[in-house]
Amino acid sequence: MIHARELTKRYGRATVVDGLSFEVRPGQVTGFLGPNGAGKSTTMRMALGLDRPSAGEILVDGRPCRQLKEPLRTIGALLEAKAFHSGRTARGHLRYLAQSNRIPESRVSEVLRLTGLEAVADKRAGTFSLGMGQRLGIAAALLGDPAIVLLDEPVNGLDPEGVRWIRDLMKKLAAEGRTVFVSSHLMSEMALTAEHLIVIGRGRLLADTSVTRFIEANSRTFVRIRTPEPERMRETLSRAGIPVLTGSDGALEAVGARAAVIGELVSAHGLTVHEVSTQSASLEDAFMEFTAGAVEYRASGEVPVRRQGTEGGA
């Protein structure tokens, strides 16, 4: 269980996390969604006790992380890739972490096996690919068999096989009754793995809801109609009580109607159509629309820009 109360982080005059309150419950994957720069990584670092909140608090099992005696046994985290020394072996990295929390040496071999790193356990981590580095980070997160797992942008830069492995792992960890809190700037990724969503933008809470409900509320489904007689079509639809919009390419968009209903109307009124197709705005679109007001602004303060790139961001 993670519990944030009025959590705030300021760097100078910039407020990166702004009065966030939420709860992350065990037994499910909770997605932490927001554009890059929304404050996700900062929130996670505060949960781990790495950064100090400017105000408010974030509790792990009811206590600030800094008060936990052997925190790896309670909370494990994968922060941004490469939190290891390039000259140290994978085993060496895990061993010193294990020793600090009095975790038995046998557990090091166990998590190496679990993450498929056995073969490279005694190779220097500097030689690792991005995917192997992520696996090592996850091995470290699982070292203390923690009830709470934090993963910051875990699929960034991974190949499809690695992405799938992480998705399955997260679901498995949640099914074991653990609290799994995973950040991402990709809505589509969250739709595949998370059951619950906490959405933030510019440090503020935008939504705290189930994934299903978020998608229902934010994705727009419509039927696209191409016809040589748009005026008659529009009139027919309006009389049937179906709202009509004109798309950017001139096609009509019947909102909230099923294609079958449109087809029957077309036939009953003898209309000519070239296309009748169901369209749903992608989840990415829904997310972009939802967070549109909450993306970072350029220094000029005029042009809103979404920050590009795959980096986790601060």
Binding site: R45, L48, G49, L50, C65, R66, Q67, L68, P71, L72, I75, A77, L79, A83, F84, H93, L97, S100, N101, A140
Partner: peptide, 9 residues
């Protein structure tokens, strides 16, 4: 970060 997450004191 890994070190201090393991030993926050």
């Amino acid at each position: 970060r890994a070190s201090l997450a393991a030993v926050p004191q």
